[in-house]
Design a protein around this nucleic acid. Sequence first.
DNA 1: GATTGATATCAAAAAAACAGATATTGTGTT
DNA 2: AACACAATATCTGTTTTTTTGATATCAATC
Lengths: 303, 303
Amino acid sequence: MDITIKQARYFVAAAQTGQVSRAAVDLNVSQSAVTTAIRDLEAHLGVRLFERRSKGIALTETGSRFLPHAEEILAVVQEAVHVVSEQQTNVHGKVRIGMSYTVAGYFAIPLIARVRRRYPGIELELTESARDTIEAAVIQNELDIAIILTSNLKAADFLDHTTLVASQRRLWLPSGHKLAGRGDLPLSVIETEPYILLTVDEAKKTQVRYWEEQNVSPNVTFETSSVEAVRTMVAAGMGITVLSDMVYRPWSLEGQRIETTDISGGVPPMMVGVCWKANTPLEPAAQSVVDFLEQTLVDRRTK
Amino acid sequence: MDITIKQARYFVAAAQTGQVSRAAVDLNVSQSAVTTAIRDLEAHLGVRLFERRSKGIALTETGSRFLPHAEEILAVVQEAVHVVSEQQTNVHGKVRIGMSYTVAGYFAIPLIARVRRRYPGIELELTESARDTIEAAVIQNELDIAIILTSNLKAADFLDHTTLVASQRRLWLPSGHKLAGRGDLPLSVIETEPYILLTVDEAKKTQVRYWEEQNVSPNVTFETSSVEAVRTMVAAGMGITVLSDMVYRPWSLEGQRIETTDISGGVPPMMVGVCWKANTPLEPAAQSVVDFLEQTLVDRRTK
DNA sequence: GATTGATATCAAAAAAACAGATATTGTGTT
DNA sequence: AACACAATATCTGTTTTTTTGATATCAATC
């Protein structure tokens, strides 16, 4: 009548390890328990979640759509269990939070929803806008905190910050591309392959920066501000790109697979963090939010 | 090792009906199944979720904190199951959404999180601000849609809308108040009892409006813009108020109980809806979001 | 075609959930 | 104080589900 939390947990473990047997070891149960849990889950949902391969399993397109939901189930359950053991959080007040667009879309909103449930006494006021605008607003006390990319803070002297996640940048390739599955390619491959450049937020500026540092000039054949467009084009074999794991999904909207490969020679990860006005103590409510975000993200795998 | 979805479902049913036996009937299981599920859940969490009373059960403070989380678990599970059965939603584009503060805090954010998971190809841009500002922005094409109180739209001629929820307004009383448990009191009781007035957003204006319609002049002893402050003051016996179920919680932050009573003679419910520029077809992405919101809210109890 | 490294299947055992009957509890009434 | 009433709690046997451990199967590679 219903899927179970256990099924979700086994599914997530299997998806993350890419192997039923390894997931079983991690979960301290037998391999057959995981296999049957996944089989029952698939039967219940009426879809195939994994492709069975000789080396393990790989998410189907449906499976990769289901994965974030399954993770969300586990997160929500954990949070529900947690909330009752905490003594009442009496913090209240208003916290004004700024987020840049990509961060909001791929990262912050689910966290914000959790903050709201956790601190019912705190009123949150959210704003999405460009990084520069947000930095300025924090400095002018128009925002209390900001969740933004912290790698290249402009007003770094006037802002304190902590990092929430460091999301690895990897090379995105269409499935079956000649470079796929090699691992540890040098960044210079983007000079010979057609390159799709994402221009949203400060993605372009960041990329240009580390190209220059490594003296690489990519062969840009298309620029777009839409992550989905990049995904579609890469999947269609129109080019390759380098983007962070935070925005990576293994399938394009059209259902074609996208692979990733590590890049050797140090492409910096994308740093997302929370920042606030330097040398100014935060209001208790804002401090609670910052603490919660740090704490929540500590035991999260960098994905 | 884990709570189960079934336990969450039974708990929610019991909390909503206020009776284990009634919940059991609704769920088509035996009363003992519900009782043991709740007992196991309480044992697992190590807290008491209900007070057992002769007429049924009532949430403890901890239980009422747990309830929204349990509901969230069920919602997330339902959504996870739903997402795999849908064929791929290819909609993409950008949708700019405006929300007023109260709506964002108590209603919209969890929905927005769901929209994001449901339509990964849609980029959402969120803005919170005052109702007037949002209406203007929609008309000037600076926002695509707005989630706001629709009872008193200012620019109603230029905006189309559909209602998402109608949240009943009820009288809030401290536990043990002489008027508690009576049911169907006339609105005129607020003339004799000290009244706490919420001033956030347009709450004040709305209240004044239906006071005038019914020729009632309340005995306002305190005004505040914080819902939590209202809750605390009512719980502490400093006055009573009339607010919608959307912002109602049975316990104050300090852990004191708040009761509600129906009001006879037609206090209008709070209408929350989504609106967009009249006579202008919505972009497909925005249309999808509107459709999703309507559809999601249809089978939700008006709480 | 044998080996390796993975998943799938099967049957028995263990654990969990359920229904139905009964006990208990708390309120209000007489 | 005893009783009736209306609810929840507990107990027991049964059914269902999950797990395990052993074995079968499959695909790639040597």
